[in-house]
């Protein structure tokens, strides 16, 4: 139903994403962003492989808090798809509520990351120092989790902007596409964290 409206707005279709060019644009941006994360994780792997005293991440970091953060991000992905689902059904109020809940989940995630960083810094893990072994462990840890944390922060701002956008427009069919594109970004941030959690904390 909403598709008919968005087609009317955007007559020039892309064969890949008939809904909008924006969706294709977001996918291509995400593919580029994924290369950025891929390079960081590959660099982490190479530094670890070549280091003689790389610490066991589990000893230095602990995983209880991070496991909870992973669960939180997965939950926020569910609230994101729920927002889109409700908007598709024409329930704008519920969609905005779920978008705000998603943004709140992201805010808690970043707050927990700040708490974790503070704890680790107090324990002596710095960007150029690591009491458990190779200093590069600290460098790569803060670089990768920091880069991801920035993405979550940007995502929270993006979600709030989109929530306002949906709230201000009475016709849900005109905002469906924007919410779907925002969702792509948010799920990507979740996807990247799944990788970061596995490679930095568990392996």
């Amino acid at each position: 139903m909403s598709q008919a409206a968005s087609h009317a707005v955007e007559p020039a279709e892309t064969p890949l994403t008939p809904e909008s060019w924006g969706k294709l644009g977001m996918w291509i941006f995400l593919a580029g962003d994924a290369v950025g994360f891929g390079v960081l994780l590959a660099g982490y792997g190479i530094m670890r492989a070549t280091s003689a005293d790389w610490p066991n991440p589990y000893d230095a970091l602990g995983i209880n808090l991070t496991a909870a953060m992973t669960f939180l991000l997965i939950c926020s992905s569910v609230t994101m798809v729920k927002a889109l689902e409700w908007l598709g059904k024409g329930d704008r109020a519920r969609a905005v509520k779920y978008l705000l809940v998603t943004a709140f989940g992201g805010t808690i995630f970043v707050s927990l990351q700040a708490y974790e960083w503070t704890h680790l810094i107090n324990n002596g893990l710095l960007i150029n120092a690591n009491p458990w072994g190779a200093a590069l462990f600290g460098t790569s840890f803060y670089l990768v989790t920091g880069f991801h944390g920035l993405h979550v922060t940007a995502g929270v701002i993006y979600l709030l902007v989109i929530a306002r956008y949906v709230a201000n427009r009475p016709n849900p069919s005109t905002t469906y596409n924007a919410v779907e594109i925002c969702g792509l970004y948010w799920h990507f941030v979740d996807l990247v964290w799944i990788m970061v959690f596995t490679f930095l904390y568990l392996l």
Partner: peptide, 30 residues
């Protein structure tokens, strides 16, 4: 996450190719 939350399963196959390109680049880099 990609297939269901990001709806990749319901897009054209070419979108999947765009999505897995970074994986290929990362493996190549390693």
């Amino acid at each position: 996450v990609a297939a269901y939350f990001m709806h990749l399963k319901f897009e054209t196959r070419t979108m999947t190719w765009i999505a897995v390109t970074p994986v290929a680049i990362a493996i190549l880099l390693i």
